[in-house]
């Protein structure tokens, strides 16, 4: 059974359509990259798939069960979402933030225990923030905040990972490290991944499949090897793209 199945999905923001009658399936052990121009609706699609906003029509099933039938906490144990930005209106520490990932796993009145704190510390050391556990979040740099958000998701430990531009603010080293880390984690859970990226070459490197949101009637889905071509990419970005062969691999670059 597919982990995420979307049938006949239509989404719009006001009068602006994002997708119409969109069908899509995400199987276990698949890693999808989502490509699309600015404002095409990648974030809206992700939020809809996570149940944070309602679709106009259509059917979304997670692990076979319709999205609205899921209990919120159980859904959060299965499906995790990384947002583009994090909010820090109120003072809070790095460890407290990472611990919020345990919320769906704990019963209504229980306190975080030793085990939860160990999980949070482990995730923080995975993203190389273990030195900063007591720091106030508003004193972190953009990249450190990004890693903290990822650590929270690692603590949440879902099977279906929806990531909205996970590499934002990250330096090259952390981009590769963290994507490797996420892929390993998804593999270990026998889960699946859908992530919005703006770097086509990262999609080539980490993803098995790609979803290209050209416009609301035309969303191309398929394995990377079949779909990711200079023609499709040029159409997608409305900009000529060329392919360069090097070191036995190929790379896409804008002309």
């Amino acid at each position: 059974m597919s982990l995420l199945a979307v049938k006949d999905l239509s989404i719009s923001i006001g009068s602006l359509p994002i997708c119409t009658s969109f069908d899509f399936e995400l199987q276990c052990d698949e890693y999808w990259g989502v490509l699309g121009g600015n404002g095409i609706g990648k974030t809206t699609l992700l939020n809809t798939l996570a149940g944070l906003r309602s679709a106009e029509s259509g059917d979304i099933r997670i692990d076979g069960l319709a999205l609205h039938q899921w209990k919120k906490k159980q859904l959060a144990c299965t499906l995790g979402l990384l947002f583009q930005d994090s909010v820090d209106t109120f003072p809070t520490t790095v460890l407290e933030t990472a611990l919020t990932g345990r919320y769906p796993h704990l019963s209504f009145l229980s306190l975080e225990g030793q085990e939860d704190i160990e999980l949070a510390n482990q995730a923080l050391s995975d993203v190389a923030l273990d030195e900063l556990t007591e720091r106030q979040v508003d004193t972190l740099s953009g990249g450190e905040r990004r890693r903290l958000a990822l650590a929270t998701l690692l603590v949440q430990n879902p099977r279906l990972w929806l990531l909205d531009e996970p590499t934002n603010h990250l330096d090259l080293h952390h981009q590769i490290n963290l994507l490797n880390l996420i892929i390993d984690k998804v593999k270990a859970n026998r889960g699946a991944l859908l992530m919005v990226l703006h770097d086509v070459n990262l999609v080539m490197r980490f993803c098995t499949h790609v979803m290209m949101m050209i416009d609301h009637n035309n969303i191309i889905c398929g394995p990377v090897a079949e779909v990711l071509s200079t023609e499709n990419l040029s159409l997608l970005y409305q900009h000529p793209i060329k392919k360069i062969q090097s070191d036995g691999g190929s790379f896409f670059l804008p002309e």
């Binding site: 939020n47 996570a50 149940g51 944070l52 919120k72 906490k73 159980q74 859904l75 959060a76 144990c77 995790g80 979402l81 947002f83 994090s86 909010v87 820090d88 209106t89 109120f90 809070t92 407290e96 933030t97 919020t100 990932g101 919320y103 769906p104 704990l106 949440q156």
Partner: peptide, 18 residues
Amino acid sequence: RGLNLMARGDNQAAALGV
């Protein structure tokens, strides 16, 4: 505990099961 998550944004809280 729900308030702790809500303080981090309504969407973030909802994504974590609140």
